[in-house]
């Protein structure tokens, strides 16, 4: 995995060959533009620790595929707008895991424009909100007229920890074409009492049980990172719980 510095990303960063990128400290205020040339398969993994604010515009050209892993463990604010446009045969898969703590306010908007036929998008957002925190997942998958045989799924899941925690999930579909597949799902809820009871009945304290459940919930994001970064994420989850 090739490490990039956020500061070094130019106004229009071009992925022209199959390569996997990792941005540590995906933090600060910035707008980014990324283009995938034709027939390129890449991944982009980002770890945010203090918070990112800005727009990420991604254009994926013909028959290219981009998989994004966005791990957000920022302490305070994150306000990220991702817009993706897909050319013929292009695919985007977007994974997000956000741990939103007390007094922090975060929003992630992930929208995909299906501009041509045979395109694919999967948006898979997971979040945990604690204390007074607020987390919003939204975004629109737009399958335009003429984009037949396209598929999209928008999924948003938020686990709220406390009475005051706010989780909002608004996955939207906009469809102007027949012969497509589209689905969306949203879940906002607290940790199941049954799950907690089960773990606690084996001697785990409430804290420990919650940590284990949260860890399990956010863990799928790990797949996008190298082992040493996985360790960092593991420690972040344990430390923040």
């Amino acid at each position: 995995m090739k490490e990039l510095l956020l500061d070094n990303i130019s106004d229009n960063f071009v992925f022209d060959k199959n390569e996997n990128f990792f941005i540590n400290n995906f933090d600060g205020e910035k707008d980014i533009k990324i283009t995938l040339n034709e027939d390129v398969e890449s991944s982009l993994s980002m770890l945010s620790l203090s918070g990112f604010k800005g727009n990420i515009n991604i254009k994926i050209n013909k028959n290219s595929r981009l998989e994004i892993y966005y791990a957000d463990f920022a302490k305070n604010l994150s306000k990220t707008n991702v817009s993706v446009s897909l050319e013929e045969g292009a695919k985007v898969i977007f994974h997000l895991a956000s741990l939103t703590e007390d007094n922090s306010n975060k929003s992630f908007t992930v929208s995909v424009d299906h501009d041509a036929i045979n395109t694919y998008s999967l948006i898979d957002n997971y979040g945990v909100v604690k204390g007074n925190g607020k987390l919003v997942f939204d975004g629109t998958s737009y399958i335009k007229n003429g984009s037949a045989k396209s598929k999209t799924r928008q999924s948003a899941k938020i686990m709220v920890f406390d009475e005051k925690s706010i989780g909002i999930a608004k996955p939207v579909l906009k469809i102007d074409e027949n012969d497509i597949e589209a689905s969306h799902g949203a879940v906002v809820g607290k940790i199941s009492d049954e799950h907690l009871f089960y773990l606690m009945s084996r001697g785990l304290s409430e804290e420990k049980a919650k940590t284990l459940i949260t860890y399990g919930y956010l863990k799928p994001i790990m797949n996008g990172f190298d082992e040493n970064v996985q360790k960092t994420i593991e420690q972040l989850i344990e430390g923040r719980m």
């Binding site: 199941s192 799950h195 773990l199 399990g216 919930y217």
Partner: peptide, 8 residues
């Protein structure tokens, strides 16, 4: 017994 997803 509960199924607890993600917890190994």
């Amino acid at each position: 017994p509960s199924e607890v997803p993600g917890v190994i």
